[in-house]
């Protein structure tokens, strides 16, 4: 394995995050803090507890998941799209680097950035609301698996996109609405029965539910199902990435 190559790409990507600190870290932390102020403190104080958890605390896992999904996609898609756009991808493609190493480096860096961000948001949340983590191991597992899965999805989007507009298309038009409608700010049990069934087709429901269960032991769907769905998305993304490299789709004519 070309460890030097993995390290080089990984460090390069992480250095880019530090160069764009405002955009990479400060901006998402600020927006999440605003969610806490608005939904947690201002509106949340008028909302009753959900399954014995105060509303401010209840939304923390959903908000972290919202950032984790959008940032993982954004980091990974930009990370691979930008060298394609500028043409510097030639260097990676002509180097003695395997596809697996390329994915480990780019996806690893994107996932690392999202995880760092998630931890910062978690710490920020602790300043606003009471937090408890009942299942720290499962919390970390959901946290890491989701970051990797959605970084892989971002990587796929970055290869598929042929313009900056498309780069934003999936996160803005699909992922963000699904996350908002996936129980980030409410329990799906609050919905009418028909919409509860419809919501189960939203894959983000399983991620948010499993993650929230690891915090407070409450869940909309079974934690095992949540974990199964997370692993299913991960495997689907890995399969798609493998196909991309096998065919050279949008990378090698």
């Amino acid at each position: 394995m070309n460890l030097y190559a993995i390290k080089s790409i990984y460090r390069f990507e992480m250095a880019r995050a530090w160069r764009t600190l405002t955009q990479s870290i400060i901006s998402p932390v600020l927006s999440t803090s605003l969610y806490f102020v608005v939904f947690g403190a201002a509106i949340g104080s008028r909302i009753p507890e959900v399954d014995g958890v105060s509303y401010g605390s209840f939304i923390v896992p959903g908000l972290i998941m919202l950032s984790l999904l959008t940032q993982s996609i954004s980091n990974a898609s930009f990370g691979i799209y930008f060298p394609r756009f500028t043409g510097t991808i030639y260097e990676v493609l002509s180097a003695p680097v395997s596809y697996l190493e390329i994915v480990i480096a780019y996806v690893g860096a994107a996932a690392s950035k999202s995880l760092i961000l998630g931890v910062i948001i978690l710490a920020t949340a602790g300043l606003f609301v009471d937090l408890r983590i009942e299942h720290p191991f499962w919390m970390m597992l959901f946290f890491v698996l989701t970051a990797i899965t959605f970084s892989l999805l971002g990587f796929i989007i970055g290869i598929w996109a042929d313009g900056f507009e498309k780069l934003q298309l999936v996160p803005m038009l699909i992922v963000t609405p699904l996350t908002f409608l996936g129980g980030s700010f409410y329990s799906i049990k609050m919905l009418p029965p028909f919409w509860q069934t419809v919501t189960l087709f939203n894959p983000v429901v399983y991620l948010v539910s499993g993650f929230r269960w690891s915090f407070y032991g409450i869940a909309d769907v079974s934690p095992a199902l949540s974990l199964g769905m997370t692993v299913f998305f991960l495997v689907a993304c890995i399969a798609l990435v493998a196909w991309i490299f096998k065919t050279g789709y949008r990378l090698k004519p």
Binding site: N2, L3, Y4, A5, K7, S8, I9, F12, E91, V92, A95, P96, V97
Partner: peptide, 9 residues
């Protein structure tokens, strides 16, 4: 330096 690393050196 990045290029050197890519080539496994």
């Amino acid at each position: 330096s990045f290029s050197r690393g890519l080539f496994g050196k």
